[in-house]
């Protein structure tokens, strides 16, 4: 098989990032991109790829192996299904779909048409996350006891204005938009979530959507996890700002996660391990040892597209398939529900 031929549907903020990534990659052919808004033609030209205003025209005219779909959530199902019917493999931006029923139908469409469905939870492709997963699953901090996740990034006023007024409405808030990434990370690193509870608040901004959330999770292995999330406090703590993965966010060298095990503690993304070296001197009256972990940085978006190409060529399995991504969406929606009903949710 020659170079994989890919198309892109949707050239918004994340679509453009995919376009730039694909145009840089030598091991694939970025054949064409489409967007309903003709203004994106310029970007396509700059990146040396063909532009279509109609994605349907693109997928019927061009001979593609797969498409990257980065359109608004409610269009994931209709556009994804249409592409699947044309036999195109799918890399759908996260979330997999707007709701669980749509996710099921999309998974079904991919299955019926024998195409792969991969979902763009790009953080799974970050070497930092992969290493953290290896540490936790490899027992390098003993048995996992608990996890704390902090996300405190201040959304500026413009974030909610003009065409983005939907972000102040239910469904447009930090649970659906931002927290879903944290949930996927926890699931990828630790495994399934069995029980959860959430308290939400909109007291600060007084929008219809939440601005602050506190979450408790129980994990399949018996450990627990906490998440505190707010988009209305100056903190500069959060995956986006701390990993430096997306330099739109001011890069602050802080820790946003701490993984606690019986034999060690790992801070993320600083990737420092804390432990007692001498079992006879283990306990709160003794000093701790600190050890760094070497990680080679690599752009997760590039690795994600590479994985997609490998999946299409049959040499790799998707790092996150439709069923897995549906589960992440299910947990995220359950958090929203728990916040509304005030009741825990059991899986």
């Amino acid at each position: 098989m020659g170079r994989v031929r890919l198309g892109l549907i949707g050239m918004g903020m994340i679509g453009k990032l995919h376009a730039e990534t694909m145009s840089r990659m030598k091991d694939l052919e970025f054949v064409a991109a489409s967007d309903v808004d003709a203004k994106h033609q310029k970007t396509a030209e700059e990146l040396g790829t063909k532009f279509y205003q109609s994605y349907e025209e693109m997928i019927s005219k061009e001979k593609l192996d797969g498409v990257v779909v980065a359109v608004p959530n409610e269009l994931h199902l209709p556009i994804g299904s249409t592409c699947a019917k044309k036999g195109l493999h799918l890399l759908m931006e996260k979330p997999i779909a707007a709701d669980l029923e749509s996710a099921d139908r999309l998974i079904q469409a991919a299955k019926e048409n024998k195409v792969h469905l991969m979902v763009g939870h790009h953080r799974r492709h970050n070497p930092l996350i992969e290493e953290l997963r290896n540490i936790v699953r490899g027992g390098k901090i003993g048995k996992l006891v608990g996890v704390t996740v902090l996300w405190s990034l201040y959304k500026p006023k413009d974030y909610f204005r003009g065409p983005f007024a939907w972000r102040a409405q239910p469904g447009g808030g930090p649970i659906r938009i931002n927290l879903i990434h944290e949930i996927d990370n926890i699931r990828y690193i630790c495994g399934d979530i069995t029980r959860l509870y959430a308290e939400v608040s909109n007291e600060a901004r007084k929008f219809a959507v939440e601005d602050t959330v506190s979450i408790n999770l129980r994990l399949a292995g018996g450990a627990v996890a906490n998440i505190f999330l707010t988009d209305t406090a100056p903190g500069n703590i959060g995956y986006e700002a701390n990993t430096g993965e997306n330099l739109f966010f001011y890069h602050s060298p802080e820790n946003c996660y701490i993984y606690y095990g019986t034999e060690g503690v790992i801070t993320f993304p600083k990737m420092k391990k804390f432990f007692y070296r001498d079992a006879a001197k283990a306990g709160w009256q003794f000093p701790l040892c600190e050890e760094g972990i070497k990680i080679d940085r690599e752009d997760p978006y590039t690795r994600q597209i590479r994985n997609f190409c490998g999946v299409i060529q049959g040499s790799e399995t998707p790092k996150i398939d439709g069923v897995d991504a549906r589960k992440t969406l299910e947990v995220t929606l359950a958090i929203q529900k728990s916040g509304e009903t005030g009741q825990p949710v059991v899986f």
Binding site: Y260, T262, E263, V265, L288
Partner: peptide
């Protein structure tokens, strides 16, 4: 306001 607490007495921290 909301509060989130993680409490554990069995981890080297």
């Amino acid at each position: 306001a909301l509060g989130t607490i993680f409490l554990s007495d069995c981890t080297p921290s």
